[in-house]
């Protein structure tokens, strides 16, 4: 899929673990893991909002588009 999820990088920059983020955004670790590994087919606006709020970022910081 040409859409990439840069959650790993953002978490590294914020020195936060996926488990900590899962607790803060109230999304299961399994679902966040699906998002992080790029296996998600869709992202809810509410999920984007919660992640952007906790990581203090924009949706564009989290998602990327690579035509190849």
């Amino acid at each position: 899929m040409p859409i990439s999820v840069k959650l790993d990088e953002l978490l590294y920059q914020r020195r936060m673990t996926l488990t900590e983020l899962a607790e803060k955004v109230d999304i299961t670790l399994a679902n966040l893991s699906i998002l992080k590994t790029g296996k998600a087919k869709a992202v809810r606006f509410s999920t984007l909002e919660a992640i952007c709020r906790e990581l203090d970022c924009q949706p564009g910081d989290l998602l990327g588009y690579d035509a190849e």
Binding site: I27, A40, K41, R44
Partner: peptide, 10 residues
């Protein structure tokens, strides 16, 4: 079909 669309939605 709707459920299948929702699968993989985070």
């Amino acid at each position: 079909a709707m459920r299948s669309e929702l699968e993989g939605t985070v």
